[in-house]
Amino acid sequence: MKHSFIDRYSDLDSPVHRIDSRVKLLLVFLAIITVVSEPQARLFPFAFYGGLILVLILMSRLPLVFVLKRFMLLSPFILLAALFYPVSLLISKEAQLASIRDEPFRVALSIFCKAGLSILLLIWLISTEKFHNLLIGMRKLRMPRLIGIISALMYRYIFIFGDEALKTTRARESRTPGKLKMNKVKVYSNQMAMIFLRSWERSVMIYQSMLSRGFSGELPAMQRMAINRNDMLFFVSFVLGLLAIRFFVDPLVTGF
């Protein structure tokens, strides 16, 4: 089975795709912090952040339909989380229904914008860089060594076990056709236990093969990374754009 959806657009050729993964990681991290640090109930700056992210997406030559589809898939979840705010206030009787219409909904919209823009940034990041390169980038940025190795292994085996889960699901369904009358939870638990057992046995074999290839607790990176002048220029201009929106888009002046 192929799982090409992760690195589907990371092979495109664009100026953004050629930028060092460390620069993109730092950029996304800074952008998320900047967006999330906006005061609650300020809505106007989010349009500017959205514009900046749109520029990034266009520069990357990513199909807008793909980005929008991915965003739409995730938006109900963040909408639900944003609506928690007025609902929670209403349940705890800290606000009346009449007042819920105004300020709490504004805050909820602000929460939705923050989460939505953060998701767009993550979609952009994973679509413009191979996951493997992101891992190398994170390791170069001093991510704990243990996390780096676990991530690399997880990335390699998550899809193999995905296929394993499909096989066990097929086996379960063939043994229990139609509606389950017996203990439903037990049947599903056994399937999960089986996935664990198979993975456990495989991990022993993986370790033995890793040892035979000279594994000593470190996964070496074959690729050499270098940050050039274009990368720096891209980083500085984007950060300046973020700072300009954060500190110079005054909601009082714009009237929002």
Binding site: I150, Y157, G162, M192, S199, S203, Y207
Partner: peptide, 18 residues
């Protein structure tokens, strides 16, 4: 322990999708 942690993590994710 490291491969076990990585592989078990992957299995944890996959099993939680059932």
């Amino acid at each position: 322990e490291i491969p076990k942690m990585g592989v078990t993590g992957a299995a944890l994710f996959v099993a939680s999708l059932v």
